[in-house]
């Protein structure tokens, strides 16, 4: 098995001849700006509330807690975690596993609350801010889980969180 896999590797790499060189285009420099984070959040189906509204909405929510394991999270109704930053052009929020009790947390809870303090304009700015990889797992999350697989009818709450609530904190 190992032997065969090794030989397939060499066989595949051996078949790939370098083609005529094509210059790597470098960083994309023509990105427009002026995106509205709030408008994008609305498009992706996230709601924005103030800290006091959040208290009213989800008084019994759970905060980030490292002791939670994956399976016990299945019973969490509302989970609150901290996002690293938001992206204005598409309403996505960058999350890393350091801010989660478990990687499955933002998916498996029924309702998700994310605190956001910083916003960058575009995905280009987002990756520039991220630089190299610092986490074992990270993601851009934009809105609640959704599907349109039945007749293209949008249904929120496919497998992941049924709602996403954003709190912008200074």
């Amino acid at each position: 098995m190992v032997q065969k896999t090794m030989s397939s590797r060499d066989q595949i790499l051996g078949k790939i001849e370098p083609l005529e060189p094509v210059q790597y285009p470098g960083a994309f420099t023509k990105a427009s700006e002026g995106f509205d984070f709030m408008a994008s959040l609305a498009v992706v189906g996230a709601r924005v509330v103030s800290p006091s509204e959040l208290e009213e909405l989800f008084p019994g929510r759970r905060r980030f807690d490292k002791t939670m394991d994956g399976l016990s999270l299945a019973d969490v109704e509302v989970l609150e975690i901290d996002g690293e930053f938001g992206v204005a052009e598409n309403g996505a929020i960058w999350l890393t596993e350091e801010a989660m009790p478990h990687r499955v947390a933002p998916f498996i809870c029924q309702h998700l609350v994310i605190n956001v303090t910083e916003i960058v304009p575009t995905m280009h700015a987002a990756y520039a801010r991220l630089g190299g990889v610092k986490s074992g797992f990270g993601l851009f999350l934009a809105g609640p889980s959704k599907t349109a697989d039945i007749e293209q009818s949008l249904v929120v709450g496919a497998h992941g969180a049924r709602s996403l609530t954003i709190v912008i904190r200074s």
């Binding site: 990889v133 074992g136 797992f137 993601l139 934009a142």
Partner: peptide, 11 residues
Amino acid sequence: LITTYSSHFHL
């Protein structure tokens, strides 16, 4: 604008 989840698996 983007898919809901764009997950980066590193470790």
